[in-house]
Amino acid sequence: MELFYSILPELIRIVVCAVCGAVIVFGNALVMGYAERKLAGHIMLRPGPMEVGPHGLYQLVVDGLKLMGKQLVVPLKADKPLFMLAPILAFAPVFVPLLVIPFSDKLQGFDLDVGYLLILAFASINVLAILIGGWGSNNKYSLFGAIRSVAQNVAYEIPMLISALAIIFMTNSFSLKEIAAAQSPVWFIVIQPVAFLIFIVSMVAETNRAPFDLPEAESELTAGFHTEYSGMSFSLFVLGEYANMFIICSVATVFFLGGSSGIPLPYFEYSGIIWFLAKVYFLMFFLVWIRWTYPRTRFDQLMNFCWKYLIPFSLVNLLITVVMVKLL
């Protein structure tokens, strides 16, 4: 019994972390799924979902039930183990980065001193999942989508890392908590506007969203790497995409928008997480906004933009930052 009590706090902590992670992933997908369809509708001067519930509020719940009830179709000539593995591999790793995100100065699963590296490492598994899915489907559209996805993700990871490195040089830490704490007087968006711009552009490309949604370009590749997926295996990809958006927007918030800092609200002990979520969802709104405003880029434009503009600019920015840090 004594043994049980000794491990109880740690056990509760693990369970709470897991439950909170699941709540964030699924709740975020519900909220963003609804918000995205509504915003898309209003941007295009139409109302969006209206039928199920007030202003279509229950639409996503109903859609989720429908997706769960659908048959899982595996194409005849697909590579079955890989085909089934890909959605799981796209969805499962998103829980790990949520552990190190500091939702407020007290609310954090696990303060790892290499937190940012952990997020990058587990985000890279997502690319592998897209590749496996595209290859396992045994469909040329899927294959092209997967190949594009790799070229895009590998390229845009570089400016993203380099622009974040400028911040890491200034704070001397990979820990997200310390980076958030380091910007108490001024946010880093003021000191590092170029890095912020580069980070935002790479962020859109890394989450495979329009105007950089070439891996799933509907008009050319039907649906890219998830053409053959149906039902729950398709929705795991979507859940993974929304969770990745949440994670990457949280990273942008921590790096550039001061993390959970903000004006204290009446219930000041909770104001940190409110400000944090407000900033994250503003960035997600921004992602949705540009998705429905700009047309898709051409693939060579996309790659040229990364290799000829973003990477040189981020390198120059890093050099200037390093010199300034050394001088000051």
């Binding site: 290499v114 590296l117 952990l118 990058l120 490492a121 587990f122 890279s124 598994i125 690319v127 592998l128 590749l131 790799v150 590998v154």
Partner: peptide, 13 residues
């Protein structure tokens, strides 16, 4: 993290 980032995330891909 470096092992996952470089070997799983880059070399394997």
């Amino acid at each position: 993290m470096m092992q996952i980032l470089i070997y799983v995330g880059a070399v394997c891909i």
